[in-house]
């Protein structure tokens, strides 16, 4: 077994170095789906989180609690719910998004949006009350106020976006259920991404491909972590050094 792992590892390195088309296709599709879902989530969640923070309304605390609970939403459960909605018999069946990369983007957005929304609310809640007062007293409109305060906590929000990307690229449950893990051929991209491919290859005993994809996934995770550190260090550095 040990020799199998060693040989699998060596073959995996070979697959990466030689830019194996199957490995590249899966990696690129993974990045495409996860980057898209994270970007769209950020575009929707940062303003949504800001609006929830800015306004006082009945049930605000309850909504924040729900959002925070969804941080830990099981990915298979998100996949199942979306499957029911997108299946032909479901209310959104007419969109024909099941087993498409677009459907997978939607599934990942369900997982990432609570994270970015919640962290945006938390980051803005940490802003000094006096700062909010001064922004309004300086004559800012509602949108100018929100924009200024978001700018103040941009590093915290950026960290949330990076964490969101980490959740998107590493999840397997929703991608499997909504994407169906369809292998891409020729111009058809398929829906096979790093996580679903690793799952399949492992179950089929094709360890070299699974390990190769695993190394790439780990590499992406390392990059995400590295990015997070850079952002956090940057937030301290930028606040206190000359521009």
């Amino acid at each position: 077994m040990v020799s199998e792992i060693v040989s699998g590892f060596l073959q995996a390195i070979n697959l990466i170095i030689t830019l194996n088309p199957e490995v590249m296709r899966i990696t690129l599709l993974s990045l495409e789906i996860s980057l898209s879902s994270t970007f769209l989530s950020a575009v929707l969640s940062i303003p949504l989180g800001s609006l929830i923070y800015y306004h006082e309304f009945f049930g605000k605390r309850f909504i924040i609690n729900i959002v925070q609970t969804l941080y830990a939403l099981p990915t298979v459960l998100a996949g199942l719910l979306l499957f029911l909605l997108l299946s032909n018999a479901g209310p959104l069946g007419f969109l024909s998004l099941l087993f498409t990369p677009q459907g997978m983007i939607l599934a990942q957005m369900i997982l990432v949006m609570p994270l970015i929304t919640g962290f945006t609310i938390s980051a803005l809640s940490g802003v000094d009350r006096d700062m909010k007062i001064i922004v309004i007293s300086l004559g800012a409109t509602k949108f100018q106020s929100i924009f200024t305060l978001i700018r103040e906590v941009r590093f915290a929000i950026l960290a949330a976006v990076i964490l969101g990307f980490g959740r998107a690229i590493s999840e397997v449950g929703a991608a499997m259920i909504i994407g169906g893990n369809i292998r891409g051929v020729l111009n058809y991209s398929g829906t096979r991404v790093l996580t679903t491919a690793i799952s399949l290859e492992t179950s089929q005993g094709d360890f070299p491909l699974a390990i190769a994809l695993g190394i790439i996934l780990l590499g992406v995770a390392v990059l995400v972590n590295f990015g997070l550190n850079v952002v956090q260090e940057g937030s301290v550095w930028k606040s206190y050094t000359s521009s």
Binding site: I136, S137, T148, R151, E152
Partner: peptide, 17 residues
């Protein structure tokens, strides 16, 4: 409000120049 201004006890400084 646009014709008035406020200075607080604690200087409020934004993370910019």
């Amino acid at each position: 409000r646009n014709r008035m201004a406020l200075l607080n006890q604690k200087p409020v400084i934004f993370g910019m120049s």
